[in-house]
Design a protein around this nucleic acid. Structure first.
Lengths: 248, 248
DNA sequence: CGACCCATTGATCGGTCTCAAACATTGTGG
DNA sequence: CCACAATGTTTGAGACCGATCAATGGGTCG
Protein backbone atom coordinates (compact mmCIF):
# COMPACT_ATOMS: atom_id res chain seq x y z
CA UNK A 1 0.00 0.00 0.00
CA UNK A 2 2.56 2.50 -1.12
CA UNK A 3 0.31 4.83 -3.01
CA UNK A 4 -1.35 7.98 -1.89
CA UNK A 5 -4.83 7.46 -0.66
CA UNK A 6 -6.33 10.73 -1.81
CA UNK A 7 -5.72 10.11 -5.47
CA UNK A 8 -7.64 11.90 -8.15
CA UNK A 9 -9.28 9.95 -10.89
CA UNK A 10 -7.95 10.86 -14.28
CA UNK A 11 -7.76 8.67 -17.34
CA UNK A 12 -4.20 7.99 -18.43
CA UNK A 13 -5.02 9.19 -21.91
CA UNK A 14 -5.88 12.72 -20.78
CA UNK A 15 -3.55 13.76 -17.95
CA UNK A 16 -4.34 16.81 -15.88
CA UNK A 17 -3.04 20.20 -16.96
CA UNK A 18 -0.16 21.80 -15.07
CA UNK A 19 -1.21 23.13 -11.68
CA UNK A 20 0.42 25.03 -8.81
CA UNK A 21 -0.81 24.48 -5.28
CA UNK A 22 0.02 27.01 -2.58
CA UNK A 23 -1.38 29.17 0.16
CA UNK A 24 -1.88 32.59 -1.51
CA UNK A 25 -0.01 35.63 -0.28
CA UNK A 26 -3.09 37.77 -0.15
CA UNK A 27 -5.91 37.32 2.30
CA UNK A 28 -8.23 34.54 1.17
CA UNK A 29 -11.26 32.90 2.68
CA UNK A 30 -9.42 30.08 4.40
CA UNK A 31 -5.71 29.83 4.89
CA UNK A 32 -5.46 26.56 3.02
CA UNK A 33 -3.46 25.67 -0.04
CA UNK A 34 -5.44 26.14 -3.26
CA UNK A 35 -4.74 25.87 -6.98
CA UNK A 36 -3.19 29.16 -8.06
CA UNK A 37 -3.63 28.97 -11.82
CA UNK A 38 -6.76 29.62 -13.85
CA UNK A 39 -7.65 27.57 -16.89
CA UNK A 40 -5.94 29.90 -19.36
CA UNK A 41 -2.69 29.89 -17.39
CA UNK A 42 -2.75 26.11 -17.18
CA UNK A 43 -3.22 25.91 -20.92
CA UNK A 44 -0.34 28.31 -21.43
CA UNK A 45 1.97 26.09 -19.41
CA UNK A 46 0.65 22.98 -21.13
CA UNK A 47 1.74 24.57 -24.39
CA UNK A 48 5.40 24.26 -23.46
CA UNK A 49 5.11 21.08 -21.39
CA UNK A 50 5.75 17.45 -22.25
CA UNK A 51 4.58 14.56 -20.15
CA UNK A 52 7.07 12.50 -18.18
CA UNK A 53 6.59 9.29 -16.20
CA UNK A 54 9.00 7.93 -13.60
CA UNK A 55 8.92 4.59 -11.80
CA UNK A 56 9.56 4.46 -8.08
CA UNK A 57 13.22 5.11 -7.35
CA UNK A 58 13.93 6.95 -10.62
CA UNK A 59 16.06 10.05 -10.34
CA UNK A 60 14.58 13.19 -11.87
CA UNK A 61 17.73 15.26 -11.49
CA UNK A 62 21.06 15.31 -9.72
CA UNK A 63 22.77 18.03 -7.72
CA UNK A 64 25.20 19.97 -9.89
CA UNK A 65 23.72 18.97 -13.26
CA UNK A 66 23.01 21.65 -15.81
CA UNK A 67 19.41 22.76 -15.27
CA UNK A 68 17.40 22.54 -18.48
CA UNK A 69 13.90 21.82 -17.17
CA UNK A 70 11.76 21.73 -14.10
CA UNK A 71 8.89 19.38 -13.34
CA UNK A 72 5.34 20.01 -12.21
CA UNK A 73 4.05 16.96 -10.38
CA UNK A 74 0.68 15.64 -11.49
CA UNK A 75 0.64 12.41 -9.54
CA UNK A 76 2.95 10.73 -7.06
CA UNK A 77 5.55 11.82 -4.51
CA UNK A 78 9.08 13.11 -5.07
CA UNK A 79 11.84 13.67 -2.54
CA UNK A 80 14.59 16.27 -2.90
CA UNK A 81 17.82 15.63 -1.07
CA UNK A 82 21.56 16.07 -0.91
CA UNK A 83 24.14 13.43 -0.30
CA UNK A 84 27.07 13.95 2.02
CA UNK A 85 30.45 12.48 1.23
CA UNK A 86 29.95 9.54 3.58
CA UNK A 87 26.77 8.57 1.77
CA UNK A 88 24.33 9.98 4.28
CA UNK A 89 21.29 11.63 2.73
CA UNK A 90 19.66 14.85 3.87
CA UNK A 91 16.10 14.93 2.62
CA UNK A 92 14.95 18.51 2.16
CA UNK A 93 11.35 18.00 1.12
CA UNK A 94 8.70 15.60 -0.01
CA UNK A 95 6.87 17.04 -3.01
CA UNK A 96 3.31 16.28 -4.05
CA UNK A 97 0.94 17.02 -6.95
CA UNK A 98 0.88 20.76 -7.58
CA UNK A 99 4.52 21.17 -6.55
CA UNK A 100 7.54 22.12 -8.64
CA UNK A 101 10.78 20.11 -8.77
CA UNK A 102 14.07 21.53 -9.99
CA UNK A 103 15.37 24.43 -7.90
CA UNK A 104 18.51 25.69 -9.56
CA UNK A 105 21.19 28.31 -9.07
CA UNK A 106 23.85 29.56 -11.39
CA UNK A 107 22.39 27.33 -14.09
CA UNK A 108 22.72 24.10 -12.10
CA UNK A 109 20.39 22.07 -9.92
CA UNK A 110 20.94 22.61 -6.24
CA UNK A 111 19.50 19.29 -5.07
CA UNK A 112 18.91 15.79 -6.31
CA UNK A 113 15.36 14.55 -6.77
CA UNK A 114 13.99 11.02 -6.81
CA UNK A 115 10.56 9.48 -7.26
CA UNK A 116 9.29 8.03 -3.97
CA UNK A 117 6.31 6.50 -5.72
CA UNK A 118 5.50 6.18 -9.41
CA UNK A 119 5.33 9.76 -10.67
CA UNK A 120 3.60 11.54 -13.51
CA UNK A 121 4.80 15.08 -14.16
CA UNK A 122 4.86 17.87 -16.70
CA UNK A 123 8.36 18.65 -17.98
CA UNK A 124 8.77 22.42 -18.37
CA UNK A 125 11.86 23.55 -20.33
CA UNK A 126 13.48 26.42 -18.45
CA UNK A 127 14.16 28.48 -21.55
CA UNK A 128 10.55 28.38 -22.74
CA UNK A 129 9.27 28.84 -19.21
CA UNK A 130 11.26 32.02 -18.68
CA UNK A 131 9.93 33.44 -21.93
CA UNK A 132 6.37 32.62 -20.96
CA UNK A 133 6.83 34.19 -17.53
CA UNK A 134 8.33 37.28 -19.11
CA UNK A 135 5.21 37.73 -21.25
CA UNK A 136 2.66 36.93 -18.56
CA UNK A 137 3.13 38.97 -15.37
CA UNK A 138 0.20 37.31 -13.62
CA UNK A 139 1.69 33.88 -14.21
CA UNK A 140 5.03 35.18 -13.01
CA UNK A 141 3.34 36.41 -9.84
CA UNK A 142 1.91 32.94 -9.27
CA UNK A 143 5.35 31.40 -9.51
CA UNK A 144 6.51 33.97 -6.98
CA UNK A 145 3.65 32.93 -4.70
CA UNK A 146 4.67 29.32 -5.11
CA UNK A 147 8.29 30.13 -4.27
CA UNK A 148 7.15 31.94 -1.13
CA UNK A 149 5.03 28.93 -0.25
CA UNK A 150 8.00 26.60 -0.61
CA UNK A 151 10.08 28.99 1.48
CA UNK A 152 7.53 28.81 4.26
CA UNK A 153 7.49 25.03 3.96
CA UNK A 154 11.29 24.98 4.29
CA UNK A 155 10.99 27.15 7.39
CA UNK A 156 8.49 24.71 8.89
CA UNK A 157 10.99 21.96 8.24
CA UNK A 158 13.64 24.06 9.97
CA UNK A 159 11.43 24.47 13.02
CA UNK A 160 10.69 20.77 13.01
CA UNK A 161 14.41 20.00 13.11
CA UNK A 162 15.00 22.61 15.80
CA UNK A 163 13.01 20.46 18.22
CA UNK A 164 15.27 18.13 20.12
CA UNK A 165 12.94 15.29 20.95
CA UNK A 166 12.01 12.60 18.46
CA UNK A 167 8.40 12.59 19.62
CA UNK A 168 7.71 16.17 18.56
CA UNK A 169 9.51 15.74 15.26
CA UNK A 170 7.51 12.67 14.35
CA UNK A 171 4.23 14.32 15.33
CA UNK A 172 5.05 17.38 13.25
CA UNK A 173 5.97 15.14 10.36
CA UNK A 174 2.69 13.26 10.56
CA UNK A 175 0.87 16.56 10.69
CA UNK A 176 2.76 17.70 7.62
CA UNK A 177 2.23 14.55 5.60
CA UNK A 178 -1.40 14.32 6.58
CA UNK A 179 -2.05 17.56 4.72
CA UNK A 180 -1.08 15.84 1.50
CA UNK A 181 -1.94 12.18 1.86
CA UNK A 182 -4.80 11.58 4.23
CA UNK A 183 -8.44 10.74 4.14
CA UNK A 184 -10.94 11.73 6.79
CA UNK A 185 -12.79 8.75 8.23
CA UNK A 186 -15.17 9.88 10.88
CA UNK A 187 -13.27 11.84 13.51
CA UNK A 188 -9.91 10.26 12.73
CA UNK A 189 -7.80 10.27 9.63
CA UNK A 190 -6.12 7.55 7.67
CA UNK A 191 -2.63 8.70 6.73
CA UNK A 192 -0.55 6.93 4.11
CA UNK A 193 3.22 7.13 4.39
CA UNK A 194 4.49 6.73 0.84
CA UNK A 195 8.15 6.54 1.87
CA UNK A 196 10.22 4.01 3.83
CA UNK A 197 11.35 4.62 7.41
CA UNK A 198 14.83 5.48 6.21
CA UNK A 199 13.44 8.41 4.23
CA UNK A 200 11.42 9.60 7.19
CA UNK A 201 14.56 9.34 9.27
CA UNK A 202 16.59 11.31 6.74
CA UNK A 203 13.92 14.00 6.70
CA UNK A 204 13.68 14.24 10.49
CA UNK A 205 17.42 13.88 11.16
CA UNK A 206 16.74 10.80 13.25
CA UNK A 207 17.83 7.19 12.91
CA UNK A 208 15.32 4.79 11.34
CA UNK A 209 15.29 2.98 14.67
CA UNK A 210 14.28 6.13 16.50
CA UNK A 211 11.47 6.72 14.00
CA UNK A 212 10.17 3.21 14.48
CA UNK A 213 10.42 3.37 18.26
CA UNK A 214 8.69 6.73 18.39
CA UNK A 215 5.84 5.67 16.14
CA UNK A 216 5.20 2.64 18.31
CA UNK A 217 5.46 4.67 21.48
CA UNK A 218 2.80 6.97 20.03
CA UNK A 219 0.64 3.96 19.29
CA UNK A 220 0.95 2.83 22.90
CA UNK A 221 -0.07 6.33 23.96
CA UNK A 222 -3.16 6.02 21.82
CA UNK A 223 -2.20 8.92 19.58
CA UNK A 224 -2.22 6.75 16.49
CA UNK A 225 -2.88 3.22 15.35
CA UNK A 226 -1.06 1.11 12.81
CA UNK A 227 -3.13 -0.38 10.01
CA UNK A 228 0.00 -1.46 8.21
CA UNK A 229 3.59 -0.21 8.49
CA UNK A 230 2.85 2.38 5.82
CA UNK A 231 -0.72 3.26 6.78
CA UNK A 232 -1.76 4.67 10.15
CA UNK A 233 -4.88 6.01 11.73
CA UNK A 234 -3.95 9.35 13.20
CA UNK A 235 -5.84 12.04 15.03
CA UNK A 236 -4.06 15.35 14.83
CA UNK A 237 -2.94 16.29 18.28
CA UNK A 238 -4.09 19.68 19.48
CA UNK A 239 -1.30 19.99 22.00
CA UNK A 240 1.21 20.72 19.27
CA UNK A 241 2.64 24.21 19.50
CA UNK A 242 0.51 26.45 17.30
CA UNK A 243 3.72 27.85 15.89
CA UNK A 244 3.91 24.91 13.54
CA UNK A 245 0.54 25.11 11.96
CA UNK A 246 0.23 25.83 8.29
CA UNK A 247 -1.62 29.12 8.63
CA UNK A 248 -0.44 31.24 11.54
CA UNK B 1 31.95 45.84 18.65
CA UNK B 2 28.53 44.80 17.58
CA UNK B 3 28.52 46.25 14.11
CA UNK B 4 29.29 44.64 10.82
CA UNK B 5 32.83 45.06 9.75
CA UNK B 6 32.28 45.20 6.02
CA UNK B 7 30.14 48.32 6.11
CA UNK B 8 29.66 50.51 3.10
CA UNK B 9 30.25 54.19 3.40
CA UNK B 10 27.18 56.19 2.65
CA UNK B 11 26.24 59.60 3.97
CA UNK B 12 23.16 59.50 6.16
CA UNK B 13 21.59 62.24 4.07
CA UNK B 14 21.62 60.16 0.87
CA UNK B 15 20.88 56.54 1.72
CA UNK B 16 21.47 53.83 -0.85
CA UNK B 17 18.71 52.90 -3.24
CA UNK B 18 16.83 49.61 -2.75
CA UNK B 19 18.90 46.60 -3.74
CA UNK B 20 18.40 42.84 -3.95
CA UNK B 21 21.36 40.54 -3.43
CA UNK B 22 21.19 36.93 -4.59
CA UNK B 23 22.90 34.24 -6.59
CA UNK B 24 21.23 34.43 -10.02
CA UNK B 25 19.29 31.48 -11.40
CA UNK B 26 21.03 31.60 -14.74
CA UNK B 27 24.63 30.75 -15.31
CA UNK B 28 26.87 33.65 -14.37
CA UNK B 29 30.60 34.13 -14.22
CA UNK B 30 31.05 33.16 -10.59
CA UNK B 31 28.45 31.55 -8.42
CA UNK B 32 28.49 34.36 -5.91
CA UNK B 33 25.68 36.59 -4.73
CA UNK B 34 25.42 39.79 -6.75
CA UNK B 35 23.08 42.79 -6.90
CA UNK B 36 20.16 41.79 -9.10
CA UNK B 37 18.67 45.19 -9.90
CA UNK B 38 19.85 47.74 -12.42
CA UNK B 39 19.74 51.46 -11.73
CA UNK B 40 16.32 51.97 -13.30
CA UNK B 41 14.78 49.17 -11.27
CA UNK B 42 16.27 50.55 -8.08
CA UNK B 43 14.81 53.96 -8.89
CA UNK B 44 11.43 52.37 -9.55
CA UNK B 45 11.42 50.75 -6.13
CA UNK B 46 12.71 53.94 -4.51
CA UNK B 47 9.62 55.63 -5.93
CA UNK B 48 7.34 53.68 -3.63
CA UNK B 49 9.74 53.34 -0.70
CA UNK B 50 10.10 55.32 2.49
CA UNK B 51 13.12 55.16 4.75
CA UNK B 52 12.88 53.46 8.13
CA UNK B 53 15.41 53.26 10.95
CA UNK B 54 15.32 50.80 13.83
CA UNK B 55 17.48 50.69 16.93
CA UNK B 56 18.92 47.40 18.10
CA UNK B 57 16.18 45.22 19.56
CA UNK B 58 13.33 46.96 17.74
CA UNK B 59 10.68 44.70 16.28
CA UNK B 60 9.95 45.22 12.59
CA UNK B 61 6.94 42.91 12.52
CA UNK B 62 5.20 40.22 14.52
CA UNK B 63 3.89 36.82 13.49
CA UNK B 64 0.20 37.00 12.67
CA UNK B 65 0.04 40.75 12.10
CA UNK B 66 -1.67 42.04 8.99
CA UNK B 67 1.02 42.41 6.34
CA UNK B 68 1.06 45.91 4.87
CA UNK B 69 4.72 46.35 3.96
CA UNK B 70 8.01 44.57 3.55
CA UNK B 71 11.48 45.92 4.20
CA UNK B 72 14.60 45.99 2.10
CA UNK B 73 17.63 46.17 4.37
CA UNK B 74 20.19 48.83 3.55
CA UNK B 75 22.35 48.53 6.63
CA UNK B 76 22.39 46.31 9.70
CA UNK B 77 21.25 42.82 10.60
CA UNK B 78 17.74 41.51 11.21
CA UNK B 79 16.66 38.17 12.63
CA UNK B 80 13.42 36.42 11.77
CA UNK B 81 12.02 33.98 14.30
CA UNK B 82 9.02 32.34 15.85
CA UNK B 83 8.23 31.99 19.51
CA UNK B 84 6.93 28.78 20.99
CA UNK B 85 4.38 28.84 23.78
CA UNK B 86 6.99 28.25 26.47
CA UNK B 87 8.93 31.30 25.33
CA UNK B 88 11.62 29.48 23.38
CA UNK B 89 12.65 31.19 20.17
CA UNK B 90 13.36 29.51 16.85
CA UNK B 91 15.50 31.79 14.73
CA UNK B 92 14.89 31.12 11.05
CA UNK B 93 17.37 33.49 9.45
CA UNK B 94 19.74 36.37 9.90
CA UNK B 95 19.13 38.94 7.17
CA UNK B 96 21.68 41.39 5.81
CA UNK B 97 21.80 44.37 3.41
CA UNK B 98 20.19 43.39 0.13
CA UNK B 99 17.72 41.06 1.83
CA UNK B 100 13.95 41.34 2.14
CA UNK B 101 12.05 41.13 5.44
CA UNK B 102 8.36 40.38 5.68
CA UNK B 103 7.36 36.99 4.32
CA UNK B 104 3.60 36.74 4.53
CA UNK B 105 0.82 34.31 3.80
CA UNK B 106 -2.90 34.78 3.64
CA UNK B 107 -2.34 38.49 4.25
CA UNK B 108 -0.43 38.01 7.51
CA UNK B 109 3.23 37.86 8.47
CA UNK B 110 4.47 34.34 9.00
CA UNK B 111 7.37 35.25 11.29
CA UNK B 112 8.45 37.93 13.69
CA UNK B 113 11.44 40.10 12.85
CA UNK B 114 13.75 42.06 15.11
CA UNK B 115 16.76 44.29 14.57
CA UNK B 116 19.92 42.57 15.78
CA UNK B 117 21.93 45.75 15.21
CA UNK B 118 20.80 49.26 14.34
CA UNK B 119 19.04 48.90 11.02
CA UNK B 120 18.32 51.18 8.08
CA UNK B 121 15.79 49.84 5.59
CA UNK B 122 13.46 50.82 2.79
CA UNK B 123 9.81 50.30 3.64
CA UNK B 124 7.93 48.95 0.61
CA UNK B 125 4.12 49.02 0.84
CA UNK B 126 2.78 45.69 -0.38
CA UNK B 127 -0.05 47.22 -2.38
CA UNK B 128 2.21 49.54 -4.34
CA UNK B 129 4.84 46.85 -4.70
CA UNK B 130 2.42 44.39 -6.25
CA UNK B 131 1.30 47.02 -8.75
CA UNK B 132 4.88 47.81 -9.68
CA UNK B 133 5.69 44.13 -10.11
CA UNK B 134 2.62 43.65 -12.26
CA UNK B 135 3.83 46.39 -14.61
CA UNK B 136 7.50 45.35 -14.70
CA UNK B 137 8.01 41.68 -15.57
CA UNK B 138 11.80 41.93 -15.32
CA UNK B 139 11.55 43.30 -11.80
CA UNK B 140 9.06 40.57 -10.97
CA UNK B 141 11.55 37.99 -12.22
CA UNK B 142 14.20 39.46 -9.93
CA UNK B 143 11.92 39.06 -6.94
CA UNK B 144 11.38 35.46 -8.01
CA UNK B 145 15.16 35.00 -8.15
CA UNK B 146 15.43 36.45 -4.68
CA UNK B 147 12.73 34.14 -3.36
CA UNK B 148 14.57 31.16 -4.83
CA UNK B 149 17.75 32.41 -3.22
CA UNK B 150 16.06 32.61 0.17
CA UNK B 151 14.63 29.14 -0.37
CA UNK B 152 18.12 27.78 -0.96
CA UNK B 153 19.34 29.59 2.14
CA UNK B 154 16.55 27.99 4.15
CA UNK B 155 17.59 24.59 2.78
CA UNK B 156 21.18 25.24 3.86
CA UNK B 157 19.86 26.01 7.32
CA UNK B 158 17.92 22.76 7.24
CA UNK B 159 21.06 20.81 6.37
CA UNK B 160 22.93 22.59 9.11
CA UNK B 161 20.33 21.50 11.65
CA UNK B 162 20.31 17.97 10.28
CA UNK B 163 23.86 17.53 11.54
CA UNK B 164 23.88 16.09 15.02
CA UNK B 165 27.14 17.35 16.40
CA UNK B 166 27.56 20.87 17.70
CA UNK B 167 31.00 21.21 16.12
CA UNK B 168 29.72 20.88 12.56
CA UNK B 169 26.78 23.18 13.20
CA UNK B 170 28.98 25.91 14.59
CA UNK B 171 31.47 25.60 11.74
CA UNK B 172 28.70 25.79 9.16
CA UNK B 173 27.32 28.82 10.96
CA UNK B 174 30.65 30.58 10.92
CA UNK B 175 30.98 29.79 7.24
CA UNK B 176 27.54 31.22 6.64
CA UNK B 177 28.02 34.38 8.63
CA UNK B 178 31.48 34.96 7.16
CA UNK B 179 29.90 35.42 3.75
CA UNK B 180 28.11 38.47 5.07
CA UNK B 181 30.26 39.99 7.77
CA UNK B 182 33.93 39.29 7.30
CA UNK B 183 37.05 41.01 6.16
CA UNK B 184 40.05 39.32 4.61
CA UNK B 185 43.26 40.00 6.50
CA UNK B 186 46.10 38.16 4.90
CA UNK B 187 45.26 34.47 4.70
CA UNK B 188 42.74 34.55 7.52
CA UNK B 189 39.51 36.38 7.97
CA UNK B 190 38.11 38.53 10.73
CA UNK B 191 34.51 37.59 11.32
CA UNK B 192 32.17 39.75 13.35
CA UNK B 193 29.27 38.09 15.12
CA UNK B 194 26.61 40.79 15.40
CA UNK B 195 24.34 38.68 17.61
CA UNK B 196 24.61 37.34 21.16
CA UNK B 197 25.31 33.69 21.91
CA UNK B 198 21.66 33.09 22.71
CA UNK B 199 20.71 34.06 19.16
CA UNK B 200 23.36 31.79 17.71
CA UNK B 201 22.04 29.02 19.94
CA UNK B 202 18.46 29.64 18.81
CA UNK B 203 19.59 29.50 15.19
CA UNK B 204 21.62 26.31 15.62
CA UNK B 205 19.16 24.55 17.94
CA UNK B 206 21.83 24.31 20.60
CA UNK B 207 22.07 25.68 24.10
CA UNK B 208 24.09 28.88 24.56
CA UNK B 209 26.44 26.85 26.74
CA UNK B 210 27.08 24.40 23.93
CA UNK B 211 27.79 27.24 21.52
CA UNK B 212 30.29 28.75 23.91
CA UNK B 213 31.97 25.44 24.64
CA UNK B 214 32.19 24.54 20.98
CA UNK B 215 33.66 27.89 19.97
CA UNK B 216 36.34 27.55 22.61
CA UNK B 217 37.03 23.97 21.67
CA UNK B 218 37.58 25.17 18.11
CA UNK B 219 39.96 27.80 19.41
CA UNK B 220 41.95 25.11 21.23
CA UNK B 221 42.06 23.15 17.98
CA UNK B 222 43.51 26.19 16.26
CA UNK B 223 40.59 26.55 13.88
CA UNK B 224 39.82 30.04 15.09
CA UNK B 225 41.02 32.69 17.50
CA UNK B 226 39.03 35.04 19.71
CA UNK B 227 39.77 38.72 19.37
CA UNK B 228 36.77 39.57 21.49
CA UNK B 229 33.66 37.53 22.30
CA UNK B 230 31.97 38.98 19.22
CA UNK B 231 34.96 39.09 16.88
CA UNK B 232 36.97 36.07 15.83
CA UNK B 233 39.76 35.30 13.42
CA UNK B 234 38.58 32.38 11.37
CA UNK B 235 40.02 30.45 8.48
CA UNK B 236 37.38 28.63 6.57
CA UNK B 237 37.91 24.92 7.01
CA UNK B 238 38.23 22.95 3.83
CA UNK B 239 37.21 19.71 5.48
CA UNK B 240 33.61 20.79 5.62
CA UNK B 241 31.37 18.65 3.45
CA UNK B 242 31.15 20.35 0.06
CA UNK B 243 27.41 19.83 0.21
CA UNK B 244 27.11 22.94 2.31
CA UNK B 245 28.92 25.38 0.14
CA UNK B 246 27.05 28.26 -1.39
CA UNK B 247 27.52 27.22 -4.99
CA UNK B 248 27.31 23.52 -5.61
C1' DC C 1 32.15 53.28 39.27
C1' DG C 2 28.37 50.22 39.52
C1' DA C 3 24.71 47.65 37.45
C1' DC C 4 23.17 44.86 34.00
C1' DC C 5 23.54 41.91 30.36
C1' DC C 6 26.32 38.67 28.30
C1' DA C 7 29.58 34.97 28.28
C1' DT C 8 31.86 31.18 30.35
C1' DT C 9 32.71 27.03 33.15
C1' DG C 10 31.47 22.82 35.84
C1' DA C 11 28.69 18.40 37.12
C1' DT C 12 24.81 15.48 36.40
C1' DC C 13 21.06 13.58 33.68
C1' DG C 14 18.55 11.96 29.83
C1' DG C 15 17.66 10.86 25.06
C1' DT C 16 19.15 9.34 20.83
C1' DC C 17 22.86 7.06 18.20
C1' DT C 18 25.19 3.06 17.29
C1' DC C 19 25.85 -1.75 16.74
C1' DA C 20 23.64 -6.08 16.38
C1' DA C 21 20.13 -9.32 15.48
C1' DA C 22 15.42 -10.97 14.80
C1' DC C 23 11.21 -10.24 12.30
C1' DA C 24 7.85 -8.86 8.70
C1' DT C 25 6.63 -7.68 4.10
C1' DT C 26 6.91 -7.64 -0.70
C1' DG C 27 8.02 -9.48 -5.01
C1' DT C 28 9.86 -13.40 -7.79
C1' DG C 29 10.60 -17.78 -9.76
C1' DG C 30 10.20 -22.69 -9.49
C1' DC D 1 0.71 -22.39 -4.80
C1' DC D 2 4.69 -22.30 -2.25
C1' DA D 3 9.59 -21.43 -1.25
C1' DC D 4 12.84 -18.06 -1.38
C1' DA D 5 15.30 -13.70 -1.71
C1' DA D 6 15.57 -8.91 -0.98
C1' DT D 7 13.99 -5.02 1.27
C1' DG D 8 12.17 -2.98 4.82
C1' DT D 9 10.97 -2.88 9.79
C1' DT D 10 11.23 -3.77 14.62
C1' DT D 11 13.45 -4.71 19.02
C1' DG D 12 17.33 -4.81 22.45
C1' DA D 13 21.75 -3.16 25.14
C1' DG D 14 25.42 0.10 25.97
C1' DA D 15 28.03 4.56 24.86
C1' DC D 16 28.15 9.29 23.79
C1' DC D 17 26.91 14.00 23.53
C1' DG D 18 24.42 17.98 24.51
C1' DA D 19 20.66 19.79 27.82
C1' DT D 20 19.95 21.34 32.14
C1' DC D 21 20.84 23.51 36.50
C1' DA D 22 23.84 26.36 38.99
C1' DA D 23 27.32 29.64 39.67
C1' DT D 24 31.25 32.51 38.39
C1' DG D 25 33.57 35.77 35.36
C1' DG D 26 33.82 39.57 31.98
C1' DG D 27 32.30 43.86 29.02
C1' DT D 28 29.83 47.56 28.18
C1' DC D 29 27.17 51.47 28.99
C1' DG D 30 24.89 54.49 31.76
Amino acid sequence: MAKIIRMKNHPASAPALPSLRAVPLRLSSNGQAVPLLDEAERETLAGIATLARFPRGARLEAEGERAVQIYNIIEGVVKTYRLSEDGAAYILAFLFPGDLVGLYENGRYVNSAEAVTAVVAHRLPIEALEQVLQRDPALNAHFLSKACHDLRAAQRHTILLAHHDARTRVLLFLDLIADHASEITGSRRIVALPMPRTDIADYLALSPEAVSRTLHALEHEGVLRFISPRVIEFDRRDDLPSIHRQSG
